[in-house]
Design a protein around this nucleic acid. Structure first.
Length: 500
DNA sequence: TGTCAGA
């Protein structure tokens, strides 16, 4: 059984006996506290975690009193490192032995000054030999992308024109977004890259007639990557680093598990030392347990408590609506009316069809909105996202295609037209909220510590229960806004910092 | 049900 520095690896004492926990915990406090939890969770199945030693990473909080780029200073990230490889957190990008070209990209193109907290901790683990696998959880909008993009760019040997880094994302949109970051950051490196997503239908060449991929970095969606690999157009024998963005979804039973595992195994077969990075803002216990068995045994991991994940920057509200129609009225007569100038808005719906219907309803009422969902043509999807990014549209209706990762700083308002629900085969049971999706949706607002608000439109007892469970899960209170009370909405938006 | 694809 585990040896851990928390001193107690038995199940009998899940909470160490510390004094009353102060509001602002020091790193070490949390590390110890959580290690015990971790050990317990892991003990159920004898996983890798059970043989981990815990190094409390030496971060002198006081020395680092200056604010990190984007994360709450007191955010607690629990690090578990395997073996005895010591890692020092990086207080500057210079600490990381990056090439001058990469540094230039970071400072000039990205306009970064210093690593965010997750970057400071994870980058040494990613970049330093022996290049262990890493499972990393970090808050929404905290700079996860930079971590793995930097990892990929810095591992590529510029002299070899073959794929050396591969990143797999759940959606086309996230692939494109990540590629834009990579190209910007790697602008001065000369590293080549290619998106593995379905091409525009017109200039699509059959895969069998395509030249093999030479690009050094490939980012794409699972279907296309699998296809390219099976047609031997994407060689993986020289891969040094494999990244799963939104890893919990990529490895979830009802997500992309099969595809992801197939790709991972294929790579492992020819290339057992390829470093694997798993990044997400969320890892529920089931997935957490599974992924830690999926990667190599001596992996490192970073986790955040779920209570800490709900961004304080984003205020959460709920509106009880007597029926579906009144949801539309709430949106147009109150939220749109009062929140006219608060920035861009994303309205999340559960199904493709409701995206279409709500779009039509709002357009019929004279509002300029667009909508996106997976049934649209790829060209159409790209166009709608571009228009939204360019600020040509203010309101975007979306299924959960955009729930994760979509980074648009002007989005200050998120409306949950439908609450996210976990799909369960046993529909006899009462529905469970999808906590992870909820958190990801909320995270579309308040990017990089900006202000934001989310309105949850509740209809009926079922929704009330779901909402209550969400509140309980994250340990937060979601303020109710009276359906037809203008002042309530105003107060909410003021409180969120979106209204004078 | 939604996310990826393709028979």
């Amino acid at each position: 059984m585990a040896e851990s520095t928390s001193g107690d690896s038995s199940n009998s004492n899940p909470t160490p006996p510390p004094a009353p926990v102060p509001e602002h915990k020091s790193w070490a406090d949390v590390a110890e506290e959580e290690v015990a939890e971790e050990a317990n969770a892991a003990s159920a199945s004898s996983t890798a975690a059970s043989s981990l030693n815990v190094d409390e990473l030496t971060i002198d909080e006081k020395k680092k009193a200056t604010k990190f780029l984007d994360e709450p200073e007191d955010s607690n990230i629990q690090a578990v490192t395997s073996g005895d490889t010591p890692y020092n957190s990086a207080s500057t990008f210079e600490d990381l032995n990056l090439s001058p070209e990469l540094l230039k990209g970071l400072y000039v193109e990205m306009k970064f000054q210093k690593p965010s907290k997750i970057q400071a901790i994870s980058l040494p683990m990613i970049l330093n030999p022996p290049h262990k696998d890493l499972i990393a959880q970090a808050h929404n909008g905290s700079g996860k992308t930079t971590c793995f993009v930097l990892g990929m760019l810095s591992r590529v040997d510029p002299k070899m024109q073959v794929p050396q880094a591969l990143c797999i994302c759940p959606t086309r949109e996230l692939t494109i977004q990540n590629m834009e970051v990579l190209r910007k950051m790697g602008k001065y490196t000369g590293i080549s890259s290619e998106c593995a997503i379905p091409a525009d239908s017109r200039d699509a060449l059959p895969i069998s007639k395509r030249a093999p991929i030479m690009a050094q970095v490939v980012i794409g969606t699972p279907g296309t990557i699998k296809k390219w690999m099976s047609f031997k157009k994407l060689g993986v024998s020289r891969l040094k680093i494999l990244v799963f963005d939104e890893a919990d979804q990529m490895l979830a039973e009802d997500g992309f598990k099969d595809n992801s595992l197939r790709i991972m195994k294929e790579i492992e077969k020819v290339n057992p030392h390829c470093q694997v990075l798993l990044f997400s803002a969320t890892f529920n216990d089931t997935v957490k347990n599974f992924v830690s068995r999926t990667v190599k045994k001596d992996h490192n991991q970073l986790f955040v408590k779920k209570e800490e994940l709900s961004l304080e920057a984003v205020k959460q509200y709920k509106v009880n609506c007597p029926d579906e129609l009144s949801k539309i009225e709430v949106i147009k007569d109150y939220i749109f009316e009062i929140g006219e100038n608060v920035g861009q808005t994303i309205i999340f719906v559960r199904t493709r069809n409701s995206a279409k219907m709500l779009h039509k309803s709002l357009v019929d009422l004279g509002y300029e909105v667009t909508s996106i969902q997976g049934a649209l043509d790829n060209e159409e999807r790209d166009k709608i996202v571009k228009e939204f990014r360019d600020g040509l549209t203010q309101v975007l209706i979306s299924t959960d295609v955009l729930a994760r990762g979509f980074d648009q700083q002007q989005v200050n308002l998120v409306i949950n037209y439908d609450l996210p629900v976990k799909y369960t085969a046993e529909y006899t049971r009462e529905p469970e909220p999808d906590y992870e999706v909820y958190l990801h949706r909320v995270g579309r607002a308040g990017r990089f510590g900006r202000k934001g608000a989310v309105f949850n439109l509740i209809c009926g007892e079922r929704d009330e229960n779901l909402m209550a469970k969400i509140e309980r899960h994250f340990g937060t209170h979601v303020t109710e806004v009276q359906e037809k009370n203008v002042e309530d909405y105003k107060r909410a938006l003021k409180e969120a910092g979106l209204l004078q």
